[in-house]
Amino acid sequence: MASVLILISTLIEIFIWLLIANAILSWLVAFNVVNTSNQFVNTVGTFLYRVTEPPLRPIRKVIPTMGGLDISPVVLILVLIFLRNLMFEYAPRMM
């Protein structure tokens, strides 16, 4: 059971880093630091968008952007950290 919990925790951690990478890449594109016509940047951006957009979409419906600032990744990261901590809090009781 502990191995499964560690695997789920690791997957949550990887997804959090993908959310952070997506946010940073979107800022770099918005400020014209990187160009999306570059094939590598386009491929990475497309991958990050396809991976992170499905869980972010319901949050964006509930929390609108505030003056061009999208806080949905922050909300999702906080929810994922909460769920991971909750998982480890109640896991020892189940074993």
Score class of each variant (00 low, 15 high):
residue 95 M to L: 15
residue 48 L to G: 08
residue 10 T to P: 00
residue 8 I to M: 12
residue 50 R to A: 07
residue 4 V to A: 14
residue 10 T to Y: 12
residue 60 R to F: 02
residue 21 A to N: 11
residue 72 S to R: 03
residue 38 N to I: 11
residue 63 I to Y: 07
residue 29 V to S: 07
residue 20 I to D: 08
residue 32 N to H: 14
residue 61 K to Q: 11
residue 80 L to W: 02
residue 20 I to P: 09
residue 43 T to A: 08
residue 50 R to C: 04
residue 6 I to D: 03
residue 46 T to I: 04
residue 94 M to L: 15
residue 56 L to G: 10
residue 35 N to I: 03
residue 31 F to D: 05
residue 85 N to H: 08
residue 18 L to H: 01
residue 43 T to R: 13
residue 8 I to E: 00
residue 74 V to A: 06
residue 33 V to G: 03
residue 58 P to K: 12
residue 79 V to D: 00
residue 51 V to Q: 02
residue 87 M to V: 01
residue 68 G to N: 01
residue 94 M to F: 15
residue 82 F to Y: 14
residue 87 M to R: 03
residue 50 R to I: 02
residue 63 I to R: 10
residue 17 W to I: 13
residue 88 F to E: 00
residue 18 L to M: 04
residue 84 R to F: 01
residue 51 V to C: 00
residue 49 Y to R: 13
residue 16 I to Y: 03
residue 87 M to I: 06
residue 36 T to A: 04
residue 55 P to C: 10
residue 31 F to A: 06
residue 37 S to L: 10
residue 15 F to A: 02
residue 74 V to K: 00
residue 59 I to M: 12
residue 32 N to F: 09
residue 79 V to M: 02
residue 21 A to D: 14
residue 6 I to T: 07
residue 58 P to W: 06
residue 74 V to P: 00
residue 29 V to W: 05
residue 63 I to L: 14
residue 58 P to Y: 11
residue 95 M to A: 12
residue 88 F to K: 04
residue 14 I to E: 01
residue 9 S to C: 04
residue 12 I to Q: 00
